[in-house]
Each structure stands twice: as structure tokens, then as C-alpha cells.
Nucleic acid binder design. Structure first.
Lengths: 129, 129
DNA sequence: GGTTGACCTGGAGCGCGCTCCAGGTTGTTG
DNA sequence: CAACAACCTGGAGCGCGCTCCAGGTCAACC
């Protein structure tokens, strides 16, 4: 058990990411701050770090590119005063996700039709009436 | 106007893909057959080619990797007898897409909550009752 | 206090899905 | 028939998002 915070392995585990990915996100400016270090130079993730990475994960896994996540992190890091800009980023992303969902849903319907076709073709002992 | 079929540029335009992508798909074995050529060696896409690429597009844009599309194309190309295998591929993909949709939807909800937070913070002249 | 495993950094490597290029042939239009 | 656009092939290049590696330090347990 650690004095405080989580090691990078513990954080990775909790977040469902790899330790490499965590270090990569930090290097690439996706985090709000450099993750604090213990005396040894090893990272000690705190609650606030984990929660931020959680948000990053949500943005990433809804398809936001790394570079946009970084721009958003830049805004938040800049501090109070640019909330309208942040809102813009989030709204644009939401709209993008909605468009994406709609498109996938449409394509999915077509694929399910195709599945139904094969199912019909492959159901020899289906009752017909 | 062409004697018959569509040039690669026309096909690309109709399908919303680039000509490079169309050639790439063909090279990579995603199509059911080599696209037929006119006397000059230029491709002439026929209805059946366009319809197949349309399906490929649906699979691709719902996230099926190129290699899986190729495996599916291989099955269809092999002719009658493997319908159960094709069905398997499609069903697995559908399930994958559904999982993906569920995940994105969940993340989206969290993002919308965050948007709402910013909206509240930025709405000074909101009526309170 | 020695060994073993976690962690560190900087940088290279990789799989994916295109996209672009060179160098050449063909089709079309004025 | 000249000029210019569209097409061809084989192969290189690229942006993305990690992932892995080397070479070294550190910690934690027996």
C-alpha cells in the first residue's frame, strides 16, 4: 500500500490503459499538469489526475483526435476565463459524435437487413404458415 | 457519356471515395472481382461493382478492419456453400458495432453532463423560477 | 544487502488506412 | 493533330496513436 496516490501501474490498471499510454498522454500535453513525483522520481497519480484521464478517455473513445484533446487541455490549464471556448469544443465534439452515431446506426440497419437475408436463406425448416 | 459503366472518377464520386481508395481496395482484395476494363485498360465499374463497394463502405464505416472485409470478400468470392460463415462474420461484426454504440452512448452522456455544467456556469441571466 | 521487479527517459518502430508520386499510356476536345 | 486531362502501375510516404526498446535508477522483500 502506498503512502499516497497511485503508482503508474495502479493508475493504468484503474483506468484500463497501458502505462505506456499514460506516459504518452503526459508527454503529449493531454494532462492538466505533470503528474507529481515521489522522492524517487516515480509518478504518484492523485485523484484529480485520474479523474482528468477519465475524461480524456471519454473524449478519445468517442473519437476525438489527440490534438483536439490537447487543445481542450490547454484551455482548461489556462484557467478561468475561457469557459465559452471549452464549451465550444465540447459542443462541436458532441455534434460530431451524434452525426457519427447516426451514420453508424444507418449502416448497421443495412447490415442487419443483410444478416436477415442470410438467416432466411439458411433456415430450411422454418414454418411457412 | 460512357459506352457502358462508370469510369473510376465517376465511381469514386458516386461512392464518396477517392480514386486512390478504389484502386487500393481492389489491389488489397476487398472486391469480388477485378473491375472490368475497357479496351484502353481503363476501369469500367458496373452496377454490381458499385453495389459491392457500397457494402464495403458500410462495413468500413462501422469500424470493420480492412482485413476482415477481405476475409468476407474471400468468402463471397468462393461462391455458394459458406453462407453460414458469412453470417458468422456479419453477426460478429453487428455485435461489435452494438457494443461500440453502447460505449459511445455512455461516454456521450457524460460529455453532455459536462456541457450542461458549463452552460449553467455561463448563463448569468437564466431565470431561476 | 542482494536480487528482482517496477519505474525512469529519449527515441525508434509499428500497424492501419489510406494518399501521393513518377513515369508512362490513353482519351478527348478545340 | 496538338495539347491537356484522365487513367495506368508499382512503390514510397504519411499521419495517427500508440507500443516497444535500451540503458539506467530505484524500491521492496527476503
Amino acid at each position: 500500500m502506498s503512502s499516497q496516490g497511485w503508482s503508474i501501474a495502479e493508475a493504468a490498471d484503474a483506468l484500463g490503459l497501458s502505462v505506456d499510454t499514460l506516459r504518452y498522454y503526459e508527454r503529449d500535453g493531454l494532462l492538466l499538469r505533470p503528474v507529481p513525483r515521489g522522492g524517487s522520481g516515480h509518478r504518484r497519480y492523485e485523484e484529480v489526475d485520474l479523474r482528468w484521464v477519465e475524461l480524456v478517455t471519454r473524449l478519445r473513445s468517442t473519437g476525438m483526435p489527440i490534438r483536439d484533446v490537447r487543445r481542450y487541455a490547454d484551455l482548461v490549464r489556462a484557467g478561468a476565463g475561457n469557459e465559452a471556448d471549452r464549451l465550444d469544443v465540447l459542443r462541436n465534439h458532441r455534434d460530431q459524435v451524434l452525426r457519427q452515431l447516426a451514420e453508424v446506426t444507418t449502416h448497421l440497419a443495412a447490415i442487419e437487413t443483410k444478416i436477415a437475408t442470410y438467416e432466411d436463406r439458411l433456415a430450411p425448416r422454418e414454418k411457412t404458415a
